[in-house]
Nucleic acid binder design. Structure first.
Length: 347
DNA sequence: AAAGCGGGGAA
DNA sequence: TTCCCAGCTTT
């Protein structure tokens, strides 16, 4: 069974795998390493120009190690996840100092380099040295979860461990490079996250998810973490066609951006906020509620439009500014404030 | 607009 | 050990 899986993949790869990519055909571990790092969170088409430019400027470990971090980052600029570039640079310097600028062949030593985890170390070992090592990146997790109907969320340790065991078991005795490339290619082009093309899949006949027509159920998605909910009332003080904004503290949410004064929504707090600035409130008008989702919580915003009748002359205003809506739209304001301002024109 | 991604570093 | 984040893509 396991042998069939690998054999079919290898056979499939000849005709349907991705060929001719700039990093294929090279066994230079440096080139293989660079491509694997660039491909970690980035798709092939974006990587290609960066890979060629980077390799042109830093053709080997010694050159990379000798370069400044600034220049390395400049060549990475636009790819994102800049810690990858910093780790790449650090690794090159480690190799220059400790391994005579040679890329280590030993799996444990490769794994020990910064920015290289178990799967990346295995991919480099397989492609550069022909070592028989299992990989398990996001694509492979999806292929195996479906092929073997592995339940649970792969981000969970228990599930990931099970997938690693399967990955090891399915390894072929020979042809590790083609097999590894085929597995990656299958996940990227056939066994895709949505709408997998099972009709074109070389292992669909004994794929558990396909047999049960449950492709969409594997791998199980990350459990939805219930976001904490927070609520605030934004006070939109308005006077003579201008609105009042104050600058937020430099750190924290919307640090340094301009926003409306806030209150907890009680009448006392609203009055207090107005008094803080010396505003004498006229009519109040609740605006439509809205919400804004952050990475770690959901914020419910109740906007309250307050027409300011009079500003007490002694009032200090160095913490805030009065701007026309148009001026405010051009200022450094967070997205929800922008939406609120945009909605002010309409009733 | 939301979820995914491989490894590092914090908790 | 386990949890969370980065910064861009794809759906």
């Amino acid at each position: 069974m396991a042998a069939d899986f690998a054999r079919r993949l290898i056979r499939w790869h000849r005709q349907h795998g991705r060929h001719g990519l700039p990093w294929q055909g090279s066994r230079d571990p440096y080139a293989v390493w660079l491509s694997e790092i660039m491909l970690q969170q980035t798709q092939v088409s974006s990587v290609i120009p960066y890979y060629q430019r980077f390799l042109g400027r830093f053709p080997d470990i010694a050159t990379l190690a000798a370069a400044s971090q600034d220049e390395v980052l400049a060549y990475w600029s636009g790819l994102g996840y800049y810690s990858r570039a910093r780790n790449l640079h650090r690794s090159a310097q480690i190799m220059a100092e400790q391994h005579a600028a040679e890329f280590p062949r030993e799996f444990e030593q490769i794994l020990g380099l910064p920015g290289i985890g178990r799967s990346t170390a295995a991919a480099i070992s397989a492609f550069a040295f022909g070592s028989r090592r299992a990989i398990l990146d996001g694509n492979v997790k999806r292929v195996l979860a479906r092929y073997l109907a592995v339940a649970g969320y792969p981000g969970e340790k228990k599930v990931e461990d099970e997938l690693w065991r399967h990955a090891e078991t399915l390894l072929p005795e020979a042809g590790i490079e083609t097999y590894t490339q085929a597995l990656m290619d299958l996940g990227a082009t056939v066994c895709t996250r949505s709408k997998p093309d099972c009709a074109s899949c070389p292992v669909s006949a004994d794929c558990a998810a396909n047999q049960q027509v449950r492709q969409a159920e594997f791998p199980q998605p990350r459990p939805r973490k219930a976001l904490p909910e927070k609520a605030t009332t934004m006070l939109l003080f308005m006077r003579q066609g201008e609105i009042f904004l104050e600058r937020r503290p430099p750190a924290g949410i919307w640090g340094g951006l301009w926003s409306f004064p806030e209150s907890d929504g009680t009448e006392d707090a609203q009055q207090h906020a107005g008094m803080r600035f010396g505003f004498e409130a006229g009519s109040l008008e609740a605006r439509p509620a809205m919400q804004h989702v952050f990475t770690h919580f959901r914020l419910h915003i109740s906007p309250l439009l307050i027409h300011v009748r009079r500003i007490q002359p002694r009032a200090r205003q160095q913490e805030g500014v009065w701007l026309t809506v148009e001026e405010a739209m051009g200022a450094a304001i967070p997205a929800p404030v922008r939406r609120l301002l945009a909605g002010l024109g309409k009733p």
